[in-house]
Each structure stands twice: as C-alpha cells, then as structure tokens.
Design a protein around this nucleic acid. Structure first.
Lengths: 190, 190
DNA sequence: GTCTATACCTTGATAGAC
DNA sequence: GTCTATCAAGGTATAGAC
C-alpha cells in the first residue's frame, strides 16, 4: 500500500454494507481506515463521490463472483440453481440491493453501478435461457425475461424477509421455493 | 383534530415512506405537521418512539388492505393473483419493506410491527393453501410455506428491482413471472 | 499525501413560558 | 398541549502546516 486511497475504499465497503449510505459518516470511515480528514478529502471530493467509487468496486466484485458461479458450463437449469443456492450472509443482506432504499439511489453516480449489476445478471440469464431454448434443450411457457427477473427478485426478496424476521429460515424457505418453481417450469426436452 | 398527535403521526407516515428512518429528522416531521418542538416531545418520547408508533399504524392499515384483497372468496389461486397484481407505487416501494434496510430494524419496537406484517401475510396464505389442499381443490408439489414465502418475496424483490432500475417495467416483469409460476405450480384438481 | 485544527450546519433533545 | 429558545453532539467539509 502506497497511499490511503485503498484503505478508505476498503473501510467504506464495510460500513456501506453494514449501515448503508445515510448512516455512514466520513468520520466513521476515517476512523476505520486510520486516515485523517486530509487523506479523505484529498482522494475523494465528497462522501457521495467516495460512495460512488466504492459501489463501482463492489459491483465489479459481485459481477465477477456471479460470472464464476453462473458461467461454468452445464444445463441452464443447474446454473440458475447454483446462483440461487450460492451461500449468502442473510442478516447483512445484499451489498448492492440494500443501497436501493438509501437516499444514495437518488444520485446518478451511485445509481449507475447498481443498475449495471442487475442489468448484467439479467442479460446473462436471459442469454443462457434463450440459447438453451434455441438449441431445443429446454421448453417453457414463461418468457426468459420473466424467469430471469423473477430469480433475481426472489433473492432480493428472500434477503429482505430474512432480515425483517431476523431469521435465515425465511430466506431458506424462499430460496427453496424459487428452486422448486424454476425446476417445475423449465422442462428438459427429453 | 383536537391535538397535534395525529398530525405528527400523519407526517411521519409520509416521510418514513419517502425517506426512511435514518433520513427523516424530527424537525422535518415538525415542519410538515405544523407542530413545534413542544408538541412533538410532549406526545412522543423520542424519534424512535414516534417511528415505532407510526409503523404500528402503517402495518395495521396494510394488513387491513391485504385482508380486503386476499380475503374475498374465490379459488386460492385467484386470491394469490389478486394480491400479486394489486396496484403499487413502484418507485416509492413498500412502506414496510423499505424499513428493513434502515437502522430502524435494529430496534425491537420498530421491528415488531414489521414482523407482524410479514407473519400475517404468510399465515393467511398458508392457511388458504392448506385448506384448498385438504378440500382436494388443488394439487401441488411445493409446500404451502414455500409458495407463500415466495409470493411475498417476489413482491419485495420486484419493488427493489423497479426502484433500482427506476423503471416499473422491471417490477411488472417480475410480477408477471410470479403470476405465471404460481399458475403453473398450483394445479386445479379437475 | 497526510496530518491537525477549525468552521459551519443539522440532529435529537431539553427548558421553561404561555 | 403548544410554543420558542437553547444546547451538546455529531455530520460534512475546508484551511493550512508538514
């Protein structure tokens, strides 16, 4: 490490996940990263600027993780199930999805990476489903866009319920339900 | 109106929905309700106290709305679809679900009404599904608890996506997908 | 690039008059 | 019950030395 730039981003990643944008102060970030006021405002114009840059990093990390899990070969159905069943920190929630209800989402710079994330997930799943359909590997009555969006929404909703009830069992039930639904709605062609 | 108590609650309902707990200040509530500091702290011990009491009101309202929509007679499948297709203010989100990512959720008094809401929805849907199963009206391979939780989570997730993308089309796609899945997974027995 | 000191505003709450 | 005045603490940002 040559500058405090990365330490500050690292601290912001932790605090934004834990507390969200509104409840995270520049001071708290400075303390966690052992950086002074000077370093903070030398590297980042404002709190919003730091948050936006932090979210870009977080989104790129999560996209890489998704590609790792979803990208491996195998039947589409298995790939979607792997994504649904990926282990998650239920009580903390989605590092990206939780930002949606923060005032952060009102700012273009903060919203852009968040949108990039969901758009990526959607495109990848839709593409995989359409390819399998074209290849005659699967059959389904539901449009790929709807299946993909539903899968993403299930996870976000499952995390919301798990956190609301302070009980991962609610998350698990939702995910199990989603897996079962995907299973019954995507039919292998032989 | 004889006291400002209700005006303050009313203002809190608006601001908590719009901005969440962290981003809503006692002062903003006072201004919106035309109440002074004195009235505010006469009727409510703290900001947290007001928020808890406001959420109790909001939850009771939403539960009544749900009972209205879901409670009417008809096949379970139709009742669930009515709930899914109930019109919603997509960009503002769920008045209750959005609180889950606020620091509010850490406080017992605030969490309690939120949990009451999701618990009510779940119990009602599970009961309706089990009754229909027992009566031999429907058949399904997925446990009622999973179907119910999935339905609730779909809506929460759909709202998260709609808001993240700033585009109700994402909400609509999710809901359409959920309706289609419910449709294909709950089979009428004749 | 990093630090400390400082400034200014908002927040959440209290005091006390009416 | 309602109001205005006030306060300590923290939030966000700037200044200027090193």
């Amino acid at each position: 490490m040559t500058t405090k730039h990365d330490d500050i981003i690292e601290a912001a990643k932790i605090l934004l996940w834990e507390k969200g944008y509104d409840a995270t102060s520049p001071r708290a970030i400075q303390e966690l990263s052992n950086a002074g006021q000077g370093s903070f405002y030398h590297h980042f114009k404002t709190k919003k600027d730091l948050a936006a840059k932090t979210m870009e990093v977080v989104v790129d990390e999560r996209i890489a993780e998704f590609d790792e899990i979803f990208g491996e070969s195998g039947p589409v159905k298995e790939r979607i199930k792997r994504f649904l069943l990926e282990p998650r920190d239920v009580l903390k929630g989605c590092r990206i999805g939780r930002m949606v209800w923060d005032s952060a989402i009102g700012e273009d710079d903060l919203r852009r990476p968040i949108q990039k994330f969901f758009q990526h997930l959607q495109s990848q799943m839709v593409a995989a489903l359409e390819q399998a359909l074209a290849a005659g590997e699967i059959e389904t009555d539901i449009p790929p866009e709807q299946i993909a969006t539903m899968v993403i929404a299930s996870i976000q909703g499952a995390l919301t319920l798990g956190r609301a009830m302070q009980d991962p069992a609610w998350y698990d039930r939702t995910i199990q339900g989603a897996v079962a639904l995907v299973d019954s709605v995507i039919k292998p062609c032989r």
